[in-house]
């Protein structure tokens, strides 16, 4: 066990956990931020995507000991009022079915738009390809990313 000072969604938070504990479980079990989801545990599905210094990363494979100097953003902190262009576009296109993967999808989409504000269809597909949606909302996700791109 060790104590870690973390910067999450602009707040300084402290946890006392094993250094190997993935950020996914630090967020969910220790900090009660459950918007980040557990899907596969091996960085293959993207449900656990968060931002590390603005880049989309898989929190299930990211040990807490590796992130102490980083700015972390989770779905809870993507915007203050739930009105990030990606969140608004997701509502506009009524994207979610079961909703479980969508936090990860949105975090990937938000990181994409930050680095590439006007992605082509192919760029969207490439950036989003690591995020599985078992309900198959891919066409709506792509449409929502385009809408968000226009409304930034």
């Amino acid at each position: 066990m060790a104590t870690y000072n973390l910067n999450i969604n602009g707040k300084n938070l402290q946890v006392d956990v094993d250094p190997n504990t993935p950020m996914l479980w630090v967020l969910r079990d220790h900090l009660d931020m459950v918007g980040t989801k557990f899907g596969c545990g091996i960085a293959q599905c993207g449900a656990c995507t968060i931002h590390l210094d603005g880049n989309a990363v898989r929190s299930c494979q990211l040990p807490v000991s590796a992130v102490t100097d980083a700015q972390i953003t989770t779905i809870e902190g993507l915007s203050e009022k739930g009105d990030h262009p990606v969140q608004k576009a997701w509502i506009e296109h009524d994207v979610p079915q079961c909703g479980y993967c969508q936090a990860g999808q949105m975090m990937t989409a938000a990181a994409l738009l930050k680095s590439n504000p006007s992605p082509s269809d192919e760029e969207i597909e490439n950036a989003m390809n690591g995020n599985i949606c078992r309900c198959g909302t891919y066409t709506r996700i792509k449409a929502a990313v385009k809408t968000a791109s226009q409304n930034q």
């Binding site: 459950v34 918007g35 779905i75 809870e76 509502i91 979610p96 909703g99 936090a103």
Partner: peptide, 15 residues
Amino acid sequence: KNVDGQKIVTGQPMY
């Protein structure tokens, strides 16, 4: 619209 849409896109506990 999905009545839970806003909760889903803001990562609120639902599951």
